[in-house]
Design a protein around this nucleic acid. Sequence first.
DNA 1: TTGTCAAAATCGAATGTCCGTTTTATTTTG
DNA 2: CAAAATAAAACGGACATTCGATTTTGACAA
Lengths: 196, 196
Amino acid sequence: MPKVSDEHLEARRRQILDAATRCFAREGFHGTSMQDIFRESGLSAGAVYRYFPGKGDIVEAIVLHKREVLAEHMAGVLGQAELPPLEEIFAGFTEAVREIADLDVLGLIPQAWALATYDPVVGPAIRGLLDTLRDYWVAVAVRMRAEGTLAPDADAVAVGRTLFSMMPGFILQNALFKDFTPEEFQRGITGLRARV
Amino acid sequence: MPKVSDEHLEARRRQILDAATRCFAREGFHGTSMQDIFRESGLSAGAVYRYFPGKGDIVEAIVLHKREVLAEHMAGVLGQAELPPLEEIFAGFTEAVREIADLDVLGLIPQAWALATYDPVVGPAIRGLLDTLRDYWVAVAVRMRAEGTLAPDADAVAVGRTLFSMMPGFILQNALFKDFTPEEFQRGITGLRARV
DNA sequence: TTGTCAAAATCGAATGTCCGTTTTATTTTG
DNA sequence: CAAAATAAAACGGACATTCGATTTTGACAA
């Protein structure tokens, strides 16, 4: 009976997740205390702990949400009758990076990679997210070969993993140096593929 | 005059650094306590603190040492009268990754990236290391263009940064999935460059 | 509508643990 | 034997989490 609406519940969840995201980006996962999250969210300890069992679960929720958003985007690209040109797919990716950077939370991504390598609680979720992303690039390569924009004898899995390989480096340069633009990235790829 | 030999001093330093490296790779930087390092190194608190002012300085020393080793390798490659083919340069890189993976400390690299994004004490050192590496790839691209293995009108800086972009992804896949071999990487690049 | 009530939601002080560092004592070194 | 090197206990602070107190909520009766 006295139970707040589902919208209220969902809004509170978002409130906590958004505040935590900002904190993690600013101070790092380990550098932000639960007190920080209480302060940033304007909520109390009791409130936050009603929604999440612990700090690790907050990160996990953020990761899972991101995975959902990404899966949707990937399905949109792969669902088209004809695959968009690679340049366009790259542009979609770099645009997403730019959006994250605008929110000043791009640093979260390298932090997630780090957690993936050793953290027993959030590691699996993050590896799962990255695996999904990698599958996406492999699927792109497979489609490219099928549609004739990749050599018929090319190793599609290898090409897909190589395409995937380029993304972390782009993200890293944007997170650390903020001087590697999508246009320059595109020019780099073009320059690399051009016959001498 | 009761002062132990410089060799002893250096050996102890290495002892601490190696132990810390293993701990960090296993449990993460934040997950390893100083107690862990005392235990793993077989030394006491007093001993460790005689060599390093604090935990952060241990990481910094590890990073600085790595930078030195890498700078030496890079100078070796660039110092040759004619630049080795790109495949060979890549092979040198992947071989280095394999060596680190064999020591079971490959996970340290993503952790360093994460620290670079937010840690005020070790961040600068790590960004410096990555900047050095990036300069290396740009220098490779410049040399390639000069030697005619890259289109004369290519943007060498863009190509260099793009080459650099591929390394984190290779490292990440090896650290997380252990299923992306140098050979497959090479095949992916070949497949990507082949004309359809 | 309004008032009431019990459950849900939130608050915030308190708790206990862990961890980096310091300090004091002991051993080793030349 | 004196100074350097190492050991080990101890400290102070920070942190994630808990828990009782308090407020807010919505169902329902009047």
